[in-house]
């Protein structure tokens, strides 16, 4: 297993009930998309908070990441809902 810190922003903070969590990833979680699916499969509150896959973006180590990007070597992933203030 690989240790990973997940940071949540925006409504994800409230929907998931925390702003970060430490997880140990199983070996089949290799990409950002895999991570999203795995988090959903863990049940609530993640399943509902992350239900719509089009409604999130991600960053690995402070850099924007695409869904297919590898988590190899990643120690921190941030998950974001759609942006916007005005």
């Amino acid at each position: 297993m690989a240790a990973l810190e997940i940071l949540y922003y925006g409504r994800f903070r409230d929907d998931i009930g925390r702003d970060r969590e430490h997880v140990d990833l199983p070996s089949h979680v290799l990409t950002v998309e895999d991570l999203l699916a795995w988090l959903r499969d863990r049940g609530e509150p993640h399943a509902s908070a992350l239900a719509r896959s089009e409604d999130f973006r991600a960053a690995i180590a402070g850099e924007w990441a695409e869904r297919g990007d590898s988590l190899f070597g990643a120690v921190e992933v941030a998950l974001f809902p759609p942006v916007g203030v005005l």
Binding site: Y9, G10, F80, P81, V83, G84, V85
Partner: peptide
């Protein structure tokens, strides 16, 4: 900026509850 910059807005009511936009 409105569609790309990573800022998120929560409207907070007087009772402390809020709603994200």
């Amino acid at each position: 900026i409105r569609t790309r910059a990573p800022f998120w807005r929560k409207d907070v009511l007087a009772d402390g509850t809020g709603r994200w936009r």
